[in-house]
Nucleic acid binder design. Sequence first.
DNA 1: CCGAAATTTCAGAATTTTCTGAAATATTGG
DNA 2: CCAATATTTCAGAAAATTCTGAAATTTCGG
Lengths: 194, 194
Amino acid sequence: MNLPPLVQTFVLHFGEMGSRWGINRTVGQIYALLYLSKEPLNAEDIVERIGVSRSNVSMGLKELQAWNLVRLQHKPGDRRDYFSTPDDIWQIVRTLVEERKKREIDPTMSLLREVLMQEPASAEERHAQDRMREMHDLFELLTGWYADVQRLDTERLVQLLTLGSKVQKILEMKDRLFVVPGSRKGRPDDAKDK
Amino acid sequence: MNLPPLVQTFVLHFGEMGSRWGINRTVGQIYALLYLSKEPLNAEDIVERIGVSRSNVSMGLKELQAWNLVRLQHKPGDRRDYFSTPDDIWQIVRTLVEERKKREIDPTMSLLREVLMQEPASAEERHAQDRMREMHDLFELLTGWYADVQRLDTERLVQLLTLGSKVQKILEMKDRLFVVPGSRKGRPDDAKDK
DNA sequence: CCGAAATTTCAGAATTTTCTGAAATATTGG
DNA sequence: CCAATATTTCAGAAAATTCTGAAATTTCGG
């Protein structure tokens, strides 16, 4: 591995971290390297710096492309492929969340929908179905929220995140301003915390 | 595997999904089974239903305990350990997020802090450090927001999530109500979207 | 359309992870 | 404190994943 120490530390860390997510060490390292690099890199550059085989880099880049996490570009008079990550880190976050949703939440949601259609054949199955319905509703709430937030432009998103705990204050204010005085507080269908 | 079809579908799915997260198939299956089960289960119950070895179940339960994802309890007159998941699915979400933060974000943050202290020895290192600083600041923003939201009680959290896109409206309203007219909109240091 | 350069594919080797059965250890009712 | 029961540990087997080098394929300048 042929990298400035500071870069190497980060690249190694991301390699290890990769295993905690579904990606392998090499993919994590390639991504980290591209993320830190000022200039786009070609496959051979990556081979030299990370020190893995050319074919491994090829597969890693393919996977990163499948995740939409790298951008492919060309330099004039050079027919090699050059790769880079978006300059805007928020774009990276958006892509990451979107792709993870696509791979993890969406398939689970369709499985849940499917299973919830079936007729339970026993008390045990009925309870299991109830549990699955809770999960389904939770995911629906989260993905609905996500879809909305995803649409916000970055400036507003940052504003929202910075707001942090003050959100509660704003909700309270909203309640005071808009809720009909004397109306009940909870909604009937999710008042089931044990 | 000895389970009602409906339960089996879900358990198998979670087993596969497990690999996308850092956990293995058996751990995913055990968790799914416990999640769906009305009654707490002991290790032998799990062996019978999932069809893996007793020792594998023991290790899986140990891992789930390390993640704080299962609760250990006892039945009177029975000295076996019984396991269950919280009834409240929001509690599960909170634990999951908390633990993933602890394992993935926190170590990355301390690495970033450490590396950001060092003196860059070249233009390349300087740029890498800038990139790392962006990531550091992003994580700080996200974890700050998370810490605040984590503190909300579930009812308010659901309210906030349900609000969804209307959040933007409320932010705009807040701007109109509270921002000094004529003040600039953007913040100077993150106006760098490419 | 040829040939050099670049990239991808893929079978098998290397490595890592998962899983098992047997043995060790721990727990507790009597 | 013993014996029965429950749980954990762990070395090695099994399985899965990752990685490589060689060969195949693609690309494109001339």
